[in-house]
């Protein structure tokens, strides 16, 4: 027996099994369907990821929380506390899944993991920002206000209206009256719904009153003392922060 004998036997054995149809090729359609399933999954994950990132931006905009960063350290702290970290974490999980799926393709594994991840993340954020500009989320929010949404979605959208917790030292409300050095502001209910509490806000020195008008939605940084707030800073809430339900 020569050294090549085991190899010959192996090859002959496989060819025999092929002839007897014991070994069968998977048909082309199998691989095509697998590819289609992969692409469908990729599209679904991409769409969910874009919707989620747009919702995160929408919730920061609607709640006005994005304005908090202009309140210095306290504002940043409140911003970080109120940032929807659970949603951001879920978005990261989707991005990792997206990256994993993309690496099934030749172009995917040719790009370094970090660059692919950063590229996909940038794409999702930009796409999310574009979707956030559309009326999609506002319409869903309106449906949530009318309680036409199923529980997980409804709660998610209702939570976008929540103002910062009162003990954070930052309050959100609507200007009802402007007097010399005093504002009467209806503070938003911390639960995001229902009646509001009117409080007197003492305007800090140096605050330009002309930039504020009745009906403005504002963030106030200061200390709540019974029914008045000694404000340190007052900032308009930018974005399309809607009035609370009772004022519409």
């Amino acid at each position: 027996m020569t050294n090549n004998q085991p190899q010959k036997n192996k090859i002959t054995d496989i060819l025999e099994r092929i002839k007897k149809n014991e070994l069968v090729q998977k048909p082309k359609i199998y691989f095509r369907l697998k590819l289609v399933a992969l692409i469908v999954l990729l599209v679904v994950v991409t769409v969910v990821s874009i919707l989620l990132s747009s919702f995160i931006l929408f919730s920061l905009n609607v709640s006005g929380h994005a304005s908090l960063i202009y309140f210095g350290m306290t504002g940043w702290q409140a911003f970080l506390i109120f940032f929807p970290w659970e949603l951001a974490l879920f978005e990261i999980i989707l991005l990792v899944l997206l990256e994993y799926l993309l690496r099934s393709f030749r172009f995917g594994y040719k790009i370094p993991i970090l660059y692919l991840f950063l590229g996909v993340m940038a794409l999702m954020i930009v796409s999310g920002a574009v979707v956030e500009q559309t009326p999609l989320h506002s319409r869903i929010l309106e449906r949530a206000d009318q309680e036409h949404l199923p529980p997980p979605l409804g709660v998610l959208y209702e939570n976008t209206r929540r103002p910062p917790a009162r003990d954070s030292g930052i309050f959100r409300g609507t200007i009802e009256t402007i007097e010399d050095s005093l504002l009467i502001v209806s503070l938003d209910n911390p639960r995001g719904k229902g009646t509001t509490t009117p409080v007197a806000v003492r305007i800090p020195q140096g605050q330009a009153l002309e930039e504020l008008i009745v009906g403005d939605r504002v963030f106030i940084r200061g200390r709540l003392e019974e029914e008045s707030i000694k404000a340190i800073q007052i900032k308009k809430a930018y974005g399309h922060l809607p009035p609370p339900p009772h004022m519409r």
């Binding site: 192996k10 090729q25 998977k26 082309k28 691989f31």
Partner: peptide
Amino acid sequence: IEDIVQDVFISTFKNINN
């Protein structure tokens, strides 16, 4: 090694359409 090479050939044949 020989067993694995055999498995590789079988897998190659089955998946050749890919």
